[in-house]
Design a protein around this nucleic acid. Sequence first.
DNA 1: CCGTATCCTGGTCGATACTG
DNA 2: CAGTATCGACCAGGATACGG
Lengths: 133, 133
Amino acid sequence: MSQRNTGVTPQVVNAHACPVREVLDRVAGKWSVQILVAAAQGPIRFTELERGIEGISRRMLTLTLRNLERDGLVTRTVYPTVPPRVEYELTPVAQELHETLQRLTDWAERNRVYIAEARAAYDVERQPELLDA
Amino acid sequence: MSQRNTGVTPQVVNAHACPVREVLDRVAGKWSVQILVAAAQGPIRFTELERGIEGISRRMLTLTLRNLERDGLVTRTVYPTVPPRVEYELTPVAQELHETLQRLTDWAERNRVYIAEARAAYDVERQPELLDA
DNA sequence: CCGTATCCTGGTCGATACTG
DNA sequence: CAGTATCGACCAGGATACGG
């Protein structure tokens, strides 16, 4: 592989067997989903994204946007004004993705308490001695 | 945090703002989804999982199962026979999750070609000099 | 305003060897 | 059969500084 490490998601050697994993690899990055969500309402500027997504660094914002753009999930439009202005917008395909992600959100919200309790119970079960520290 | 590193997913310091990320953190692990899929048809044994999921190591299978169990997504049942027999089964909550993951799969399959082409186009655009190597 | 380049750290996973 | 323990590699992502 003659390509240097550009920070872009490297291509897989053995193609994915499972299509679910394929999506996840695209979306499992720490910031991908939040960008998709933030951009779902319409075109949005770089700085708006940066301000809207708590804790994201400029680097990761750029990197994640590039990957999304590479996969055809966002479009990048540069307006050659001064100061420069760049807008990102979800493609129709990404809009679909965003809708299915919404199902996941629903699931998470319906079951977040259940999961939290399961965790708590499990942890108590396995590490009871840590309770009196 | 007085807990040693047991290989179990560490708890987050700052709680998740976004509920989508909460799901993803639970499912984004390299093997979680494949385990959920493999177990979706009914109770399944450790070795069956190991054989069914190409490339998974014993270690990762155990680790991922533990995390899923901890989150209340799978149940672990030990039959004290000899040789021992352990069965894993999805909880109803995980069954729901599995269904929504199915939507993601559908999306992936509908759009895999589109994405592959987007990638190819993007890469050519950015690294044309690599074509004649 | 919108990035890129570099350096560095910690968490994830694979390999391997050992147990009830 | 169904695990656990240990070590090491690798890379995603944070901090920081610079550029058009």
